[in-house]
Measured scan of single mutants.
Amino acid sequence: MATVKFKYKGEEKEVDISKIKKVWRVGKMISFTYDEGGGKTGRGAVSEKDAPKELLQMLEKQ
């Protein structure tokens, strides 16, 4: 499965596409929420050019 690499609050993070719950576009950025486990929801964003094609496909399906 594909992963998304991004920075959040200065920390490098990587999340599996299957854990992503919601995806939306903000200008040229793709924002998303994902399941961190333990009932927590994380947030992240990547630029449109750095987003994996699976993430862009999720955006188109909504």
Rank of each mutant, 00 (worst) to 15 (best):
A2K: 09
A2T: 09
A2V: 08
A2D: 10
T3Y: 06
V4M: 03
F6G: 01
F6H: 02
K7V: 11
Y8L: 04
K9M: 14
G10M: 03
E11M: 04
E11R: 08
E11V: 08
E11K: 05
E11H: 14
E12L: 09
K13I: 14
E14T: 05
E14H: 08
E14L: 03
V15L: 03
V15R: 01
V15F: 01
D16T: 07
D16C: 11
I17A: 03
I17R: 03
S18E: 10
S18V: 12
K19P: 01
K19W: 13
K21E: 15
K22Q: 09
V23C: 13
V23W: 02
V23M: 09
W24K: 04
W24Q: 12
W24D: 15
R25V: 06
R25E: 06
V26K: 14
V26H: 11
V26F: 02
G27H: 04
G27E: 14
G27K: 13
G27L: 03
G27P: 13
G27S: 04
G27W: 02
G27F: 01
K28T: 05
K28S: 05
K28V: 03
K28L: 13
K28R: 07
M29Y: 06
M29W: 04
I30V: 09
S31R: 06
S31I: 02
S31A: 09
F32D: 00
F32L: 12
F32R: 00
F32N: 00
F32Q: 00
F32S: 00
F32W: 01
F32I: 11
T33C: 14
T33A: 14
Y34T: 01
Y34F: 07
Y34N: 01
Y34R: 00
E36Q: 05
E36L: 07
E36W: 06
E36D: 05
E36I: 13
E36Y: 10
G37V: 11
G37D: 15
G37M: 13
G37A: 13
G38E: 11
G38S: 07
G39C: 15
K40T: 10
K40P: 12
T41A: 10
T41N: 14
T41G: 11
G42H: 11
G42S: 12
R43K: 11
R43C: 14
R43W: 03
G44N: 02
G44R: 01
G44P: 01
A45K: 06
A45E: 13
A45V: 07
V46M: 09
V46Y: 01
V46E: 01
E48L: 02
E48P: 13
E48R: 07
E48K: 08
E48M: 04
K49Y: 11
K49H: 11
K49P: 12
D50H: 03
D50S: 09
A51W: 01
P52C: 13
P52S: 06
P52H: 04
K53G: 10
K53E: 12
K53S: 06
E54L: 10
L55G: 00
L55E: 00
L56A: 07
L56N: 06
Q57Y: 07
M58A: 04
M58L: 10
M58P: 01
M58C: 06
L59E: 08
L59P: 02
E60I: 07
E60Q: 03
E60L: 05
K61G: 12
K61W: 13
K61Y: 06
K61I: 14
